[in-house]
Amino acid sequence: MTPLLYASSGVAVFAIALYRIFTAGDVLRKIIAANLLGGGVFLILVAIARRPAAGIDPVPHALVLTGIVVSVSATACALALARRLEGTTLDDGDDGDDGSDDTEVAGRGP
């Protein structure tokens, strides 16, 4: 029963984060959501590993450890980009399809 309890908690965290990563306006909150998305999945994986009566299954533990490293890497990368970002959102500009863009292509030779 305990594994199912934590697994449901993981699903709830995952769902909240999934909802917020697409609806939040601010990038920092999107990055927190991306991190929590991973946290929810890890909780489910470890709860799954907890079920066998014969003993804990170590494979999901190893998968989660790998997943945490990947998650930290992605979060650190996202935060470094956020520090260089001018505004608070990802959408304050053209998406390359509205025709208003006149940005010169950088790196033109002298």
């Binding site: 995952f14 998305l37 929810g40 980009l81």
Partner: peptide, 26 residues
């Protein structure tokens, strides 16, 4: 930075949805 961050923040939920599927299958 904006293009890169936007790319990352859409690619991450994609991978994590996939990973959740992997967890269930395991």
């Amino acid at each position: 930075p904006r293009a890169a961050l936007r790319y990352l923040l859409f690619a991450l939920p994609g991978s994590l949805l996939y990973l959740l599927g992997v967890a269930l299958i395991y």
